[in-house]
Amino acid sequence: MRRIILALAASALPSLALAPPAAAQSKELHLFNWSNYMPPDLLKRFEAETGIKVTLDTYDTNESMLAKLQAGGGGYDVVVPTGPTVQQMIRDGLLLKVDAAHMPNFKNVRKPFDNPDFDPGRAYTVPYMWGTTGIAYDSAKVPGGKIEDSWKELFEPRKEFYGNIAMLKDMGEVFTAAAYYLGFDQCTSKPEEGQKILELLEKQKPAVKVYNAEGSADRMGNGEVAMHLMWNGAFHRAHKKLKTAVYIYPREGVNLWGDNLAVPKGAKNVENAKLFLNWMMDPKNAAEASNFTAYNNAIAGSDAYLDPSLREDPAVNTPDDMVSRFRPLRDCGKAALDLRQKVWTRLLR
């Protein structure tokens, strides 16, 4: 048996020695991202400017991306995780240190995105798009068109919205919004607080028409529902069709999430990946991505290239007095997650 293994190893060695140092020569970049989350024209320009061929593979959620890498799948050069997922990936040793803070274009990164809690000093990641999760409602449905800037409007809705509300089917977003309304921390692991959140959500449930994270822009834009727990970029698209739609940042706190570009361990084209990360911090490129996705970016100077409709939308270009309401999403521990999961399962059991 040992002889066979030795023989096999001996026959494999020369081929290893002959294999070229792939990273140095390859003109490829394997991007692992959502579909349509980067404008195809922008990627084509990157290819033209650098001669590097970009191949896109896709995933539908942070969690499925993480699960695939945890199970040993991979071979991608750049992934696009959201803040808390970055934290998990660093802890699990799934990311490569790229020292983003010392890249030439890093000087363009706006505060506070230059030093986030999930990646202190930006050792691993570069910021891409960011957004918030607030309440969208149709102002034509209420007298005077105005409602309070509070989560109360969503969780204890007035009769105009009762039965006409859509929630994101996203455990994290629903749970944290309820936690903010009740004055709890987003990472609460206290059973009695979980109980209160569950009671609130169960009371709200009959007022909810649908839990769904997909197609929210159309659901709101077509007037299928009159209120929606919503990501701001989706709101921007809905607003194009429904001019009376309004986005509010509830005063109790609003989730702030940011997607980032990172290089996973096992990447085959690390240098190309770094080049890409730096390239995406160029104001013009970042603005082009924003114009395509309808989400804001973290690059100073990109405003000049932004579509006026985005620049003037307070849902995307957050007014300064609303910034204090931001609550950056954190990676909560196991106890907090178990509590969320219990509440969520009981809500939908």
Binding site: S64, M171, K205, V210, Y211, N212, K334, Q341
Partner: peptide
């Protein structure tokens, strides 16, 4: 979930959830 409104969970999504958000 898409057509029914997802107000009650199915086994399929419960299992999916364990490999996703529930970790």
């Amino acid at each position: 979930e898409l057509l029914g409104g997802a107000k009650s969970m199915m086994v399929g999504s419960l299992i999916q959830q364990q490999f996703g958000q529930a970790r």
